[in-house]
Computed example of a mutant assay.
Amino acid sequence: MEQAKFYSDIAEGPASGNAYWIETDDGVRLRVGAYQSEVKAKGTILLMLGRFGYVERYGRVAKTFAENGFSTAIIDWRSQGLSDRMASDPQAGHIESFSDYQKDVAALLKAAEELELPKPYFLVGVSMGACIGFRAMLDGLPVAASAFISPMFGIKMSTIQRIAAWPLSWAFQKLGIGQNYVPGESGEIYILETPFENNNLTHNNAMYEYWVKQAQAAPELQIGGPTMSWLYEALAECRRLSTVPSPNIPCITFCGELDQLVDNASIKRRVAKWPNAEFSMIRNAKHDVLTEIPEVGGDVMTQIFDFFAKASAEAMP
């Protein structure tokens, strides 16, 4: 694979961090990243981030993974980071079909194989990345266990917003104007336009400042708000996934009590019909539970590592 630009100075991840170009089956050029374990390898975490995600965003998280024996493979989804943008406005968070993300998953898996990252594979999915990862698990993603952080199994909306969102987003798609922003959204970079005190992601000021510095240093990695097409496709995928059985793969799920982005009720319904799943509602936590301050989130990382170790042990003959 051809080397891609990698911003090691703002990632603050393992020294082994690097990025590569890879192409999907439908000809989209994506950027994938890899961080190697810093101790005896326990496997590789396929890290699937949400709508703002890019390779460097969780560099510090990948550092913790590496210190605990896990390599990390991560991807800039199409329309994010340095991967090809799908809309005429490169700032738009746009997708033509939610199923296109599965082509990106296939590219991530191919990269992990070509880089010979250690097995077994584990999935850590954050928000939209958890939704994408859940679909991939249903389609046979070869992971021994998964951990979901505020999974997007439903989008948090008021009743009035939900009633309006379906027909409006559908109509925009049918009229060929699905690349328009969702009302109230724009190409502005959330992390630069929103003071820490007003953010809906985390109580962790140090982590928020880390993201702000990344956005200031490399604005080309950032995107703005979602398009109407993304909204319709996301709503439709959440509805489709709500009717399917859970995969026979162990899963631990964390949600923030104060989450303003995803619908916690939808997450509870999913976990309730997942026999080998564990669930934790983190009191006073916002959306990005994995980066919350210890006083709020506790040690989510340790719980994930312990869960993965237990799943690995149970899977051994």
Rank of each mutant, 00 (worst) to 15 (best):
210 Y>P: 02
233 E>V: 03
178 G>R: 01
96 E>A: 12
192 L>C: 09
5 K>H: 15
69 G>R: 00
300 V>E: 00
19 A>H: 02
43 G>L: 02
244 V>M: 13
102 Q>D: 11
306 D>R: 14
206 A>V: 13
147 A>W: 00
56 E>D: 08
31 R>N: 08
249 I>K: 02
145 A>N: 01
47 L>V: 07
170 W>C: 09
222 Q>H: 10
243 T>S: 12
126 V>F: 13
153 F>Q: 01
53 G>T: 08
122 F>G: 01
264 N>P: 00
104 D>S: 06
257 E>N: 06
290 L>D: 04
126 V>P: 01
196 F>H: 06
68 N>H: 14
37 S>N: 11
30 L>D: 00
185 E>Q: 15
110 K>I: 08
39 V>Y: 06
272 A>W: 09
87 A>D: 03
192 L>R: 11
88 S>W: 06
217 A>I: 05
282 I>A: 01
307 F>M: 01
99 S>E: 15
85 R>V: 02
69 G>T: 04
193 E>A: 14
286 K>A: 04
11 A>W: 00
39 V>L: 07
78 R>D: 05
26 D>S: 11
86 M>R: 07
293 I>N: 09
239 R>Y: 14
273 K>P: 10
37 S>Q: 08
227 T>Y: 02
279 F>T: 02
114 E>F: 05
280 S>I: 14
278 E>F: 05
271 V>K: 00
94 H>I: 06
210 Y>G: 02
170 W>F: 13
197 E>G: 04
4 A>Q: 01
213 K>S: 10
71 S>T: 08
106 A>E: 13
66 A>C: 10
164 A>H: 10
136 A>F: 04
2 E>M: 11
245 P>T: 09
255 C>L: 15
4 A>G: 03
245 P>S: 14
210 Y>E: 01
134 F>V: 05
285 A>W: 00
40 K>W: 09
134 F>W: 11
303 Q>V: 05
